[in-house]
Computed example of a mutant assay.
Amino acid sequence: MADITRRLGWRHLRSAPTTHIRHHRSGRLVHDGPGLGFWYRPLTAALSEIPVDDREESMAFHARTADFQDVTVQATVTYRIGDPALAAERLDFSIDPDTGVWRGAPLEQLSTLLSETAQQHALAVLARTPLADALTDGVAAVRDRVTAGLGAEPRLAATGLHVVGVRVVAVRPEPEVERALRTPTRERVQQEADRATYERRAVAVERERAIAENELASKIELARQEERLVEQRGANARREAEERAAADAIRAEAEAARTVRLAKAQAEAAREAGEARARAEAAWLKVHAETDPTTLHALTAARLAENLPRIDHLTVSPDVLTGLLERLGRPPADPRPAPAPGSAE
């Protein structure tokens, strides 16, 4: 919208570069062009403001395919006013000299013209297309048909409109039909997912089986090694027992030999001691045999006196003294044994 400034009954208009201004005064064209700025009197001025920039018209409409299925088409048409003078002659682009506001609704008229024309061509192409083809190739077909139809539309050319481009966003069926169409694909995708799941499970089972086999092989190998270890330990124990038995046998033999030698030595010592005692006894007996009995009695009395307890007082009666004197005066008996009868002296 142009900027209008008031000054003492005059008005100053300043437009943008994307806006084409036409100023008529008294039926004559005074100013004509984009981005103008000028003074004018509102009572004698007729102003028109035509936008010349690119504009987009979005539309959404329903259509029916060849198999009588309803679809929704979403499209956008980009257009611009290529001939502002022609557009100002066909449509009301006049503005209020005081406020700069359009007196009518020219852009709505252009929108209705574009939408109805585009829908007409889109309906024509979809009416001969089955639903499956419309959903797969309908976007390109509708875009090409609408572009060609708008370019060849005489009313648009007579209005000064140029179609810059047509974009078809989507061609969609009704929600129920769309869900029904999605079902086979969804089932197919689900089957693929299930197959992938089963394959993954099969691979997991195979890997678990391989792991179990490896664990079993490890356990078997471990048991075999434990068996060898037990056998080796048994062999070591037997060898140790044999060595210990051999050592004990050697030790027992040595102990027996030592005992025998000790016994022999003790027997020899006992024999020699016996012989020495026998010789001593024989010598003692020989000495006693050769000794005078009186001397022996005296020795016996001395030995007896050595072993008797201490005697402080001794009383000798006449009878005892008489008997003792008789025994001391009697000659000793012959200690040798008497000769056997009939033996020679």
Rank of each mutant, 00 (worst) to 15 (best):
Q191K: 03
P34N: 06
I21F: 07
P184A: 09
E272N: 08
L181K: 05
V125I: 15
D83G: 07
M59H: 03
L110N: 05
E199H: 09
E243P: 02
V168G: 01
R14S: 10
L13V: 15
L107N: 02
L308E: 03
T18W: 10
A45Q: 02
R279H: 11
V71Y: 02
A237G: 07
L114A: 09
R143S: 04
T291L: 12
E108M: 10
I4P: 03
A344C: 10
P173V: 08
D32A: 14
D137T: 03
L8I: 14
A340F: 09
A252Y: 13
A298N: 05
G35C: 10
Y79P: 07
P331H: 00
V52Q: 01
D70E: 07
L325G: 00
E116L: 10
T129F: 13
R80H: 15
T291P: 03
Q74V: 08
L222C: 07
L131S: 04
L156F: 02
K219M: 13
T129P: 06
Q266N: 14
A298S: 12
L131M: 12
A267W: 01
T19P: 00
V125G: 00
Q120Y: 14
H23Q: 12
A180Q: 10
E275A: 13
R261V: 12
A45R: 00
D96M: 09
E116H: 00
V52R: 00
F68Q: 15
V168A: 08
V203H: 11
A245V: 10
G165Q: 11
A340P: 05
D194V: 10
E206P: 04
R233W: 07
E272P: 08
R195Q: 06
P175Q: 05
A333S: 08
H121T: 09
E206A: 14
R64K: 06
W39T: 11
E57D: 10
V203A: 13
N214E: 06
E206Q: 05
F61P: 01
T18M: 09
E243C: 09
E174T: 11
W39S: 09
L181S: 03
E206C: 03
L131C: 01
R179W: 10
W10P: 09
